[in-house]
Design a protein around this nucleic acid. Structure first.
Lengths: 108, 108
DNA sequence: ATTTAGTACTGCACAAAGAACAGTACCGTA
DNA sequence: TACGGTACTGTTCTTTGTGCAGTACTAAAT
């Protein structure tokens, strides 16, 4: 199956990025991410709780016609800043890795 | 500092890829990887021991004129296959993430 | 001759984060 | 009223990178 370890930290980035466009609720995020990368519910909810505790999200409840009330997550200012940091890191990181695995055994 | 979690599993891929061209010794791998991404010696050596135990590397010692003998690592057949798997996974994974963070909130 | 710096490897205790799983609860339908 | 889908909580387990201490060899500086 999909490499578990690749996901460490990246899930973080994905959730933040998805919340940058609009507020979303947990189950919705699980569905959206699962379409592209395998992820368990537990991971996403755990992450949402953690980042909320760290001040990157604010939450509010809203009732749903098709089940229990949904907890929506909204990026805080800190969350937006964190997202920008992670985005930049992700880009330079993947670039670095691609250079490393690109095959050129150059010293420089 | 660099995001620790991004590295999970990727270090694995980097080491395998670097060994695909030629045999290398541990310290050399640490130096090569450190040029691009921050990594501690402990991580690389731990990983080398683990992958060796799992049959992806064979090792041999060779003396050095500038210090203690070096332990060289060579990819086994299993190691080459594993590398190909990881490479493919890495490519589809980064593609998926880039789509997710790319901003299109599309359902499909 | 002894110290110091660079090279090179070993091994362990620790922390972070995702996975698996069980549990709670609401809603609509058969 | 039993089932399946929606929606969230919480705990335990595993993997993997980190930090640190330790060993040991070589060469240059004091």
């Amino acid at each position: 199956m999909m490499n578990v370890q690749f996901k460490k930290g990246v899930l973080n980035l994905c959730v933040l990025a998805l919340l940058d466009c609009q507020d979303r609720y947990g189950y919705e995020l699980v569905q959206m991410i699962s379409k592209r990368i395998e992820v368990s519910e537990g991971s996403v909810y755990t992450l949402l709780r953690r980042l909320t505790k760290e001040g990157y999200f604010e939450t509010y409840l809203k009732e749903s016609s098709e089940g229990p009330p949904r907890k929506y997550y909204r990026l805080t200012i800190a969350g937006q800043a964190y997202l920008q940091d992670l985005l930049a890191e992700w880009r330079t990181f993947t670039e670095s890795v691609n250079e490393l695995i690109g095959g050129d055994g150059k010293d420089e």
